[in-house]
Design a protein around this nucleic acid. Structure first.
Lengths: 231, 231
DNA sequence: CGTTGTGAAAGTGTTCACAGCT
DNA sequence: AGCTGTGAACACTTTCACAACG
């Protein structure tokens, strides 16, 4: 099995680009709602909060979908990006852990725009099992493997306490899941071929604190420091 | 004013490194709890899920805190990283928007380990205002500016619906806030000097869907596609 | 004309591999 | 003897600037 680091030439869209496609898609949907049918890279870039050269290079990885001198057709670009992201099919998502966060996720905007469907909710707590949420009964984690296979769940969201997350991951991976979105503050150990994305509130706050501290330092006694550093 | 692109020599820690420090800190806290007092870059790297060369280079930006032939002192490194991240002081955080997500955030682990304190909760809905949550009454967003200034809030978490997010951002920035953690699915427009970090469920799911689709393509009819592509 | 698509340059991040220290 | 700290090589990403084209 040829295993180049990643990317390869075979239609490889850079990771940095993939991470921005959802952003463009949202900006395009906003334009479409306002009845705009054509957009230049400059205008779309502003709407998405990036610079226009980057946007053009990103889109060029998908193909040549623009018209020189004119711009991009909004609807057509929405379709192409959706297609590339795999949103033209519906993905069955299971949420494991129905605490505050799990509830928030389940309720979040009809789950999310298009492309995803909450197919199951799980919790280990018998007091929560049976509760109805977004038209769906919470099931006990005992049934995890069966339900995942029967309902074709391909993406699992882990919103359990940290202590339970690795065990949940092991079980859903054993059941065939290869995409996990992890909200628990632990590093999941997974085999090759399984994608994990992590969302971590405390990490984000700590990064903000770092920059905030920098800004504070710069205001008090900064010239002193600068001189000492220059020497 | 000399303005090298960014970084410069003046103590500039690369962004990529800053983003990993919280990870190392968590891994170190785990080791400390298990009574481990010294750790090698290799072991710490495994615990944090990165490779050891990267870990060593990251730590080298903070200073020379290891001992050759031995490793790093766990407590000392915890202190140095905490210091660098600005966690040796307490940051007052305000959460705006007390829906499902806001509640989840407010309840999340006593907010988060150390360094942060929920100083205010705001909502625009009179039905929610007055409700008590983590020992704190939800206040009306009318008082945003006053409360931020009086309680020294320096980080604001926006957990409102998309439509309200920009307006909230404008107001808290006018009140002096320069660090925002945004959970609303919009690109916030902010002036220079204000840091925004964005957490976005639907973006994360879309990125997973992209990779999931790739994996699926590779299993079915991949050779056919590859040939068509090569031509 | 105006705007895309893209080579080339610049900048940033990661990994290798080993000298240097304990 | 073992492990850190780091130059040098490599890989990836962003930005520039302009030729190509509708």
């Amino acid at each position: 099995m040829t295993r180049r680091p990643s990317q390869a030439r075979d239609r490889g869209i850079p990771d940095a680009t993939v991470a921005r496609l959802p952003l463009y898609l949202r900006a395009l949907n906003g334009l479409a709602e306002r009845g705009i049918s054509t957009v230049s890279s400059e205008d779309l870039a502003v709407a998405a909060g990036v610079n226009s050269a980057k946007l053009r290079k990103d889109l060029s990885h998908l193909g040549s979908y623009g018209t020189r001198g004119v711009g991009y057709d909004v609807q057509y670009l929405i379709y192409q990006i959706s297609r590339e992201l795999g949103l033209t099919q519906d993905w069955a998502v299971a949420i494991v852990g129905v605490g505050n966060l799990g509830r928030a996720l389940a309720n979040y905007g009809g789950f999310v725009s298009r492309g995803f469907r909450v197919a199951a909710l799980f919790d280990a707590d018998p007091a929560v099992v049976g509760e109805r949420l977004v038209g769906m009964a919470v099931e006990h984690t005992d049934g995890l493997e069966n339900v995942i296979e029967n309902r074709g769940v391909s993406i699992v969201v882990i919103a359990t306490p940290a202590a339970a997350a690795q065990q949940v991951a092991d079980r859903v991976i054993a059941a065939g899941v290869t995409s996990i979105l992890n909200f628990a503050p632990v590093v999941l150990n997974v085999p090759d071929g399984v994608d994990v994305r992590k969302v971590d509130l405390s990490t984000e706050l700590q990064i903000l604190a770092f920059h905030e501290q920098r800004k504070a330092d710069r205001e008090t006694g900064s010239s002193m420091m600068a001189e000492a550093m220059d020497a």
